[in-house]
Nucleic acid binder design. Sequence first.
DNA 1: GCAGATGCTCACATTACCTCA
DNA 2: CGTGAGGTAATGTGAGCATCT
Length: 297
Amino acid sequence: MGDKDDGLGLSLSLSLRCAQNQPSLKLNLMPLASPCMHHLQPKNTWNELLRSSDGDLDTRSFLGGLDVNRAPTTVDCEEEGGVSSPNSTISSISGKRNERHNVGDEVEAERPSCSQASDDENGAAGDDPRKKLRLSKEQSLLLEETFKEHSTLNPKQKLALAKELNLRPRQVEVWFQNRRARTKLKQTEVDCEYLKRCCENLTEENRRLQREVQDLRALKLSPQLYMHMNPPTTLTMCPSCERLAISSSPSLAVAASSIPAPTSAVVLNQQRPLPVSPWTTKPISHRPFNPAPESRS
DNA sequence: GCAGATGCTCACATTACCTCA
DNA sequence: CGTGAGGTAATGTGAGCATCT
């Protein structure tokens, strides 16, 4: 299920793996869904988190103070438990695809008599199965608040929220799906912008370094100047953390560090440097990758 | 334990409607 | 008033996972 959302996503992040074993460039941008990181969590995490010990779903933690277990306040044309779903499960009509295909009657059955659209506009909506309903401010607000808490709903939560909002569960489900999509789209745009800046900075840094190389080559041709020049960029490694530090030339640190972070928190994990050791004349041989933790002596 | 069927939910792409400049 | 753009509700499809048989 590589392309599936884990549904948990309290942060959106984008990882750019530079190499195996190396920290990734990671953007944690918003406390929202994280559709890009499917691999991090199993998809049912919310459901599992919200499921109480007896296997029931704890919906009270959800909806921000809204007790979704209480009886619905509004008369719901979708019978309790029956919803409008033909398969008499908690799930909405989204349930069986086959049955969704018979939509003709199903939609008819589901449609508006009970949803918010059932009021005045519904007259028109009744005929056109695709008549669009506009959610009220209150409905949108509650949906947004709920979404902030978690970007996916378990069936019980969905049902409860639908009742609270006087909507069909399918509408709530659709709203959340669309909301996740919007979030992801926005996040992609932010990430894209950030990476663009990254790229520009690195390009600039690359140019600068190439100029530096050229200068050094030129200087090499006139050795008398050697003695008076500033030391070139050198790399030293901290023995304890094995990270490279730049001395003499601050330039190398520029590319990554000069990139302004996107609107929300960005963790830019710098690529772990090559194991160059200034304390030894011999280059460190690259150890084969060993997942087992190594004991340092 | 394994395989197939079924049900559910998801992401994603797309359509269709609504609103507004 | 007509129109195009943007927003978004709704639909269709394919896929992963859980459960059941």
